[in-house]
């Protein structure tokens, strides 16, 4: 009984002396989330990317691009997944990109897509056999004409010419004779808008 009493007192003394102060500063919490760019301007033939950041109450931040759910107000103009934006069609226009995580939302980011009105094929005057590089240059609604289109272009050639596309560069190998080269641009999504294919005819003697 004496041993028990001594043990009890010792335990209580140890316990109460080891008790610390109550924590008064809680673990950091989420303050808000944000899309890092409030506005983005892109050409209809390009891709763009956005990132999202979470701000904590202790003033630290973290990248949450892959954790939040991305959505577009008009996916025919711009669609978004994991922060990667793709223009919906060649018409262009504006779309609001928003993010959400379990009821937490951020201010939308405005994406302005500059429309494509047409395009032309470079090297229209090939007159020797051998390899030549072809490019499609877009005509955009903001007046830009020298921008090379590398996305959503399909190249075809007739007769003895062959075309290889590597690293977005189309190389045509031309033999003697008549050759038609056609570049067709297809839309990212189904849309009423379409750009007419461009065809160039070559005659190499």
């Amino acid at each position: 009984m004496k041993l028990f009493t001594i043990t009890l007192y010792a335990t209580m003394i140890l316990f109460f002396t080891s008790c610390g102060d109550n924590t008064e500063t809680p673990l950091s919490d989420i303050s808000h989330i944000e899309i890092d760019s409030p506005t983005t301007t892109m050409y209809a033939t390009d891709a763009a990317s956005l990132s999202a950041t979470v701000y904590y109450t202790d003033a630290t931040t973290a990248d949450v691009t892959g954790q939040v759910t991305w959505s577009s107000s008009d996916s025919s103009i711009a669609s978004v997944s994991g922060g990667n934006i793709v223009a919906g069609n060649s018409n262009g226009g504006d779309a609001n990109i928003t993010i959400k995580y379990r009821g937490l939302t951020a201010s939308p980011s405005l994406v302005s897509v500059i429309g494509l009105t047409g395009f032309s094929i470079t090297n229209a005057d090939i007159n020797t056999t051998g390899e030549h590089i072809l490019q499609a240059k877009g005509n955009f609604s903001d007046g830009t004409t020298e921008k090379v289109i590398v996305k959503n272009i399909v190249w075809t050639a007739t007769n003895s010419a062959t075309i290889e596309v590597a690293n977005d560069i189309a190389t045509i190998t031309v033999s003697t004779g008549d050759t038609n080269v056609t570049a067709t641009m297809f839309e990212e999504t189904n849309s009423s808008s379409s750009i007419a294919p461009e065809t160039v005819s070559y005659t190499v003697n």
């Binding site: 673990l27 989420i30 979470v54 904590y56 973290a62 990248d63 954790q67 939040v68 379990r102 937490l104």
Partner: peptide, 11 residues
């Protein structure tokens, strides 16, 4: 787990 969006931490 406590959800910090960027990670989930167990205490």
């Amino acid at each position: 787990d406590v959800d910090y969006i960027s990670q989930r931490i167990s205490y």
